[in-house]
Amino acid sequence: MRILQALFFPPEQPGGVSSMVPFMLERFNKRGWEMELFSLPKRVRGKGGEEVHFSTFDWEPYAGNPVVDKYIQTIKDYIWWTKLRIKSSYDLIHAHHPIAGLVMKRLFPDTPLIMTIHSSYERELKLNGKISEDGPEYQFLTSLYRELEEKADQLITVSNSFKQYLSDYVQEPEKIGVIPNGFDEKRFRPVHHENQVPQLISVCRLVPAKGLDTLLYACAELKRKGLPFVLHLIGDGPIRPELEALAQKLGIYDDTIFYGYMLHPEDFMPFFDVFVLPSRAEAFGSVFAEAALCGLALVGTRVGGIAEQIEHGVNGLLVPVDDVAALAAALEKVAGDPMYRYQLSRVALEKALKSYSMTRIVQQLRSVYRSYRKDA
């Protein structure tokens, strides 16, 4: 059975789907499956020129909005690149981005398509202040979910909460499957260590949706109380200058290290104590599972897939979104009590190994793939 894994970002990109799928593919190929990866290189821009049409809505009324125009052009580019590069046929295509899924079904209409929706582009843009919920860009992007439902043979998403979110935009939400992201457990090695000063770490793109401003205010509250810490921020993004300026304003710049982009943060993470990310929305929140596999205690917000990964007080702590006082209290509790922190991290590791190991996800996907075998 020949299967194509169709990504949007190239597989060498760090984080989330782009780093997960190659490990998944390796597991399948070692077991005798025939799988290949495909993605759109970043250098391919403005190449495609074919007309784009959808069967469930008319996108033309949204034309002229930069977000929509860029999205449509990217679909055209993906069509151009796919026609140029793919010359063979496949028994099944598994797409991991709406553009990849829509293009693959357009060019290979007789090939079964599984579509995993990993995140919500419109929510990210809204939280990052780029679009409004009542604007044309939001309407265009949410209309794509119904189009995907129409075109894909199977829709899958990564958490029950995100399935619930999608239910507002599709006709048969009960048919959406849920398979969480999986992680190659061999990449993560918890390290026994004793830090005299609690080491806090966050790994993400530096954008408003991640709530890092709330984290800096919470850390300033820790310092005001005389509680020592070091905050390590791994990642880069458009609001890095603002966050650095805020850290200086709050008097915690000397306690905060901005690392910028890092290719393999999992090599670094096991030497810290607490992973914290006060996101304002997450479809799944892959980095929490990765942090748990590194042996860290977890602190997150009660949103989306984070709240499905963390059971409050059992394998981590949950706080409301944008609640500085609650986040500061949670950090004080977990950072100030090494035994409590160890207990949380131990349970978090056990749950991550059980629920999010690559072995389990491969088993779930294998069952889905086999249902589309021609000889089944």
Score class of each variant (00 low, 15 high):
2 R>C: 10
4 L>H: 10
11 P>M: 10
20 M>H: 06
21 V>T: 12
26 E>F: 03
27 R>V: 09
31 R>E: 04
46 G>S: 08
50 E>F: 04
52 V>K: 05
52 V>N: 05
54 F>S: 04
57 F>M: 10
60 E>K: 13
62 Y>Q: 06
63 A>F: 05
65 N>G: 06
66 P>F: 01
69 D>N: 05
70 K>D: 07
72 I>N: 09
73 Q>W: 00
75 I>A: 07
80 W>N: 03
85 R>A: 11
90 Y>H: 07
97 H>V: 09
103 V>W: 05
104 M>T: 05
104 M>A: 05
106 R>V: 03
109 P>Y: 03
110 D>K: 14
112 P>N: 00
117 I>N: 00
118 H>F: 00
125 L>A: 03
130 K>V: 11
130 K>I: 09
136 P>F: 00
137 E>Q: 04
137 E>F: 02
142 T>C: 07
143 S>A: 08
144 L>R: 05
146 R>P: 07
148 L>P: 05
151 K>E: 03
153 D>L: 07
155 L>W: 03
159 S>I: 00
159 S>H: 00
161 S>T: 00
166 L>H: 00
167 S>R: 10
168 D>M: 02
171 Q>R: 11
172 E>K: 11
176 I>N: 01
177 G>T: 11
178 V>E: 06
184 D>N: 11
194 E>R: 15
199 Q>W: 05
200 L>V: 13
202 S>P: 09
204 C>G: 03
208 P>F: 01
215 L>A: 10
218 A>I: 03
220 A>T: 05
233 L>E: 11
236 D>C: 10
241 P>V: 10
243 L>H: 13
243 L>Q: 13
245 A>G: 15
251 G>V: 02
252 I>C: 12
253 Y>V: 15
253 Y>D: 14
254 D>V: 13
257 I>T: 15
261 Y>E: 12
263 L>C: 12
264 H>N: 15
264 H>Y: 12
265 P>Q: 07
268 F>P: 15
277 L>G: 09
287 V>R: 02
289 A>I: 08
290 E>F: 02
295 G>T: 08
296 L>P: 12
303 V>E: 00
304 G>Y: 00
306 I>G: 00
310 I>T: 02
312 H>P: 14
313 G>D: 11
315 N>V: 14
315 N>I: 14
319 V>W: 05
322 D>F: 07
322 D>Y: 06
328 A>K: 13
329 A>D: 14
331 L>H: 07
332 E>L: 14
333 K>I: 12
335 A>V: 12
339 M>Y: 12
339 M>F: 13
343 Q>V: 13
343 Q>P: 14
350 E>D: 07
357 S>Y: 06
357 S>L: 11
370 R>W: 06
373 R>A: 06
